[in-house]
């Protein structure tokens, strides 16, 4: 059913910290790995070792440069995947009912056996979060690792999305953003978590934590440390002075 639920019991989603993401793309690789081996059609590659490789990915990391009016420019690594929007335009445009938003947790999914591969949902998503798999002819998107988070066959610490489990920088957080007392909601409140393209009216569930301002001096302790290289003495001192005189 491609009508959106007026409310979902939970709003599961990701909180991505633009301050700590180092742009390593580990989340991209773990996402591709998990979602190729598990739920739904594998994420195919076309011409992977050839001259024009391309493939299906559910998570991609961009990098942006901000140049403030004063001070140094800053480089921001920017992971982007489906934001599991509350007013998901990708769901309502779908003619077949393949795209839907789950009542119980708000996850936006594609039922691949109903998808005709028309591509309209990908057009309707402002974030580029949906990609048509070229081998399978069906629409692929982030499932929030729905086959991990409830999976009792996995150890408890693995019951989070693959990208969250993998991130070496702790830049990705997973939880219920509909529950004000959850860790992720507190993090969003504390750090001023933001929506992407709020003017598109999609009401994304995923939030992005803005980068903190850069410190003025790089290391507060540095000025108090003893300089390591003192005036050279002995043979080196003689060499230094001799060379100086030449």
């Amino acid at each position: 059913m491609t009508q959106l639920p007026s409310q979902t019991e939970k709003k599961l989603g990701l909180v991505i910290d633009l301050d700590t993401c180092v742009g390593c793309h580990a989340c991209v690789v773990s996402c591709k790995g998990w979602n190729t081996e598990n739920y739904g059609a594998p994420l195919s590659d076309q011409d992977p070792y050839g001259a024009d490789p391309s493939g299906t990915f559910l998570n991609r990391v961009h990098s942006y440069e901000i140049t403030p009016s004063e001070g140094a420019a800053q480089l921001i690594h920017f992971p982007k995947s489906c934001l599991h929007c509350e007013d998901a335009p990708c769901v309502t445009v779908c003619p077949t009912g393949a795209s839907y938003k789950r009542l119980e947790d708000g996850i936006v999914l594609v039922n691949e056996s109903s998808c005709i591969g028309c591509g309209l949902c990908a057009w309707a998503c402002p974030y580029g979060a949906r990609e048509m798999d070229q081998a399978e002819g069906v629409m692929k998107k982030c499932t929030l690792c729905v086959d991990r988070i409830y999976n009792e066959n996995l150890p408890e610490e693995d019951r989070v999305p693959a990208c969250v489990r993998t991130c070496p920088a702790g830049a990705r957080h997973f939880g219920d953003l509909g529950d004000e007392t959850s860790d992720v909601s507190k993090l969003v409140a504390e750090r001023g978590g933001m929506d992407l393209m709020p003017e598109q009216g999609t009401k994304p569930v995923n939030k992005y934590l803005p980068p903190r301002p850069k410190d003025e001096t790089f290391d507060v302790l540095a000025p108090f440390l003893e300089p390591v290289a003192a005036e050279p003495k002995g043979f080196l001192g003689w060499l230094d002075k001799t060379l100086e005189r030449l």
Binding site: H62, I76, K80, L196
Partner: peptide, 30 residues
């Protein structure tokens, strides 16, 4: 690009590096 990244109020935002060197479905289609 300011609203797309949410970083617009911090200065001028420029796409520095794309996520992939080749093309993909999004680029071909949209």
């Amino acid at each position: 690009i300011g609203t797309a990244t949410g970083l617009g109020d911090r200065g001028t935002v420029r796409a520095f590096e794309p996520p992939h060197t080749g093309n993909n479905y999004l680029m071909r289609e949209m």
